[in-house]
Design a protein around this nucleic acid. Structure first.
Lengths: 200, 200
DNA sequence: TGAATCACTACACTCACTGCACCAATCTGG
DNA sequence: CCAGATTGGTGCAGTGAGTGTAGTGATTCA
């Protein structure tokens, strides 16, 4: 895990993190629309052009570490025990994502900020949903690859769609209601359990 | 329905329709990204500023008449038989949406173009998803209202999220694969059946 | 018919995002 | 340890979406 990367790479990551931190701080402070990319870059002491070297869009800076979470689930699926049954595997993969979300985003309030901003900024909401969708597609492919004889493409997509749909809808509802991290995680777990029963 | 509106209103609608027609024609011709708002306005013989008087964003011109078919499902939920069980009701509501989608997508050329473009243009895809999400929230509220003793807010959200997530993921996968309308509808039905089993 | 309304326009502006030419710091093979 | 290749970051000029504002002229209404 703790790979000693080259100096160049470490500097790059430092710049990236500085941009994320600056963005989060400014968004919390002034709201999403009131913060320009130029401002974020300025606060992170890099040129505006550099921002787009690290993130495709302004929205993406808020979704920065979401990829890590997807990778987690993908690895869980790829490295399954040969004996593991489909429902168990899917539940395990989702549980890992939930746990990681709780550890990171829920703990440090990023998830709350994101939900709050997304609720009021259409462009952000849209981008967020889109991310979920691409993640879903990746997961579906991986899942089908893990059970090639049991799942066709459509079924795999539906399965993942149901899981992600249920969990994120539950999380969003809990967040909207103003629940704390524990309750949000609980809501996600219950949603997962609800769907998991149907995979037999 | 056929209210004889004032001349001013009729002119306004004519302008609006001219913008939609011009946009559709240009999008079909050159692709979404290759068409600018200025170009659309020009083809519709209005000023660019007028475009944004009728549509909030460039994407919205394609979503203009795309009422997400929530009303049907909402009515199905509201007007349920007192004896109807939860799973049956949910399935019935979703079935209606699927059937209606199928009817419209066949008849309406705009819907077909929309599906094709949405599959390849991220911004468009994002807006469409956003519509689904608002629809989901409405459905969840209605469902919880229909079964106040049996469902709490979170469970209702999760349930609807699972349904919509599964069905739309299946539909999108089928569309991406190049399936025809019949196959797409079939995919949606199978996804629905998959999730429905879990609601017992 | 005179006043109010409103769709539309012209213009100037902000800001997200891109292409390109260019440094200068880091890395790599000899 | 040095020369050349990589590559993260910069400056600049540009495109295009979307907005604020101050009009204008056609409808609508009293």
């Amino acid at each position: 895990m703790a790979e000693k990367q080259g100096l160049r790479e470490r500097k790059k990551q430092r710049t990236r993190q500085a941009l994320i931190d600056a963005a989060v701080r400014l968004f919390e402070d002034k709201g999403y629309d009131q913060v320009t990319v130029a401002e974020i870059a300025d606060a992170a002491e890099v040129s505006p052009r550099t921002f787009f070297l690290h993130f495709q869009t302004k929205e993406d800076v808020l979704l920065a570490n979401a990829d890590v979470r997807v990778d987690l689930a993908l690895r869980a699926i790829a490295g399954r025990d040969p004996g593991e049954r489909l429902p168990d595997l899917v539940v395990r993969a989702m549980e890992q994502m939930i746990a990681d979300t709780w550890d990171h985003d829920l703990a440090d309030g990023l998830a709350v900020l994101r939900a709050r901003l997304a609720a009021s900024v259409p462009a952000l909401q849209a981008r967020l949903l889109q991310r979920y969708l691409t993640a879903q597609a990746e997961l579906a492919v991986a899942l089908q690859r893990a059970f090639p004889d049991r799942l066709d493409t459509i079924t795999a997509s539906a399965l993942v769609g149901a899981m992600v749909g249920a969990v994120s809808a539950a999380a969003l509802t809990a967040l909207r209601r103003g629940d704390g991290p524990d309750e949000v995680r609980d809501a996600m777990r219950r949603a997962l359990a609800l769907v998991a029963r149907g995979v037999g």
